[in-house]
């Protein structure tokens, strides 16, 4: 009995970690963009959805030609990253750049418009039905005995997310580009005065965020096994919650927020009721906004008068 309880707990812990890793991957895009230009890119969820669709199309074609699974995984993910990044880059140029001097509300409305546009574009180009997404992740034989606790897909999601997030942290901390990103986030005018091309840094931020979302999209589509045009909306909302939870603008905050949200949902559904998954997630958001509005790791910014 005792043994069963521990196993159940571990199962919930790992499924929370899996979900949380995906939330974190998407939340990083929200938080990095907010850190640099202080807008919420509500079209970010759609970038993730487009990543999943790109991977679906590429993998279907490659499967037809009989490519090996690992090659399909790499090529499909690679194409998804390139496609999503191109969308992210273009969205910034069309929807946000012309509004850089505008009041804060304008880019927000523009973001929501972009999100609706992309959803409907995919709806028209594809279909409104759920489409089957064959898993791109091979089964590991040696993991079979532990199948009840953790599957290959979950393990791969956790590992890839961890690698990607560590790589991102190293880029931001140690490279020239990373320093320029942080400098731009902290003082945009001064960054220009030391010779940073702020436009390039903003584009680069959108590209990196979109690439992370694309990776998240491919992984989650493999995990759940079906996608449609609407998956970006709810995932985007959850990831946004994660970013706010951790402290918007903070990279470690986005990761922590994603994991906390993943665990809240997983333990909530596991121990209380599976009907209330979203209720747990958004109740947590409400609580954080009431008691610690700057988020878990966020810096409270004093309003300049």
């Amino acid at each position: 009995m005792e043994h069963e309880n521990i196993k159940y707990f571990l199962e919930l812990f790992l499924s929370g970690l899996t979900k949380g890793s995906i939330y974190a991957l998407i939340a990083l895009g929200y938080t990095m963009v907010y850190g640099i230009i202080e807008i919420i890119n509500f079209a970010h969820g759609e970038i993730y959805m487009i990543g999943a669709f790109t991977a679906l199309i590429v993998s279907s074609v490659l499967t037809m030609f009989g490519f090996p699974m690992i090659a399909i995984l790499i090529l499909a993910t690679g194409t998804a990253i390139i496609y999503s990044s191109a969308y992210g880059y273009t969205i910034e140029k069309i929807a946000y750049k012309p509004l850089r001097q505008a009041p804060r509300l304008s880019p927000l409305i523009s973001a929501i418009g972009m999100s609706i546009f992309l959803q409907n574009y995919v709806l028209l180009a594809q279909t409104e039905n759920f489409m089957k997404f064959n898993s791109l992740i091979p089964e590991f034989e040696w993991l079979k005995p532990y199948k009840e606790i953790i599957g290959t897909e979950e393990l791969i999601i956790i590992i890839i997310s961890a690698i990607v997030m560590i790589a991102l942290t190293l880029i931001v901390k140690y490279t020239r580009l990373g320093k320029a990103m942080r400098a731009t986030a902290q003082d945009r005018m001064m960054a220009r005065l030391v010779g940073v091309s702020v436009n390039k840094i903003i584009s680069f931020t959108f590209i990196i965020g979109s690439a992370l979302a694309a990776i998240g999209g491919v992984l989650i589509a493999s995990y759940i096994g079906q996608i449609n045009y609407y998956i970006g909306f709810i995932a985007g909302l959850k990831a946004f919650t994660a970013a706010v939870l951790g402290g918007i603008g903070s990279i470690p905050g986005a990761v922590l927020g994603g994991l906390v949200l993943g665990w809240t949902e997983s333990f909530g559904t596991g121990y209380i009721s599976s009907d209330y998954e979203d209720v747990f997630a958004f109740s947590l958001l409400v609580l954080i906004l009431i008691f610690r509005p700057e988020g878990i790791l966020g810096r409270s910014t004093s309003q300049k008068v």
């Binding site: 320093k179 942080r182 902290q186 005018m189 001064m190 005065l193």
Partner: peptide
């Protein structure tokens, strides 16, 4: 230029 108010990047 060294602008008025110094503009040090505070968290670097």
């Amino acid at each position: 230029q060294v602008p008025e108010g110094r503009h040090i990047f505070p968290h670097l």
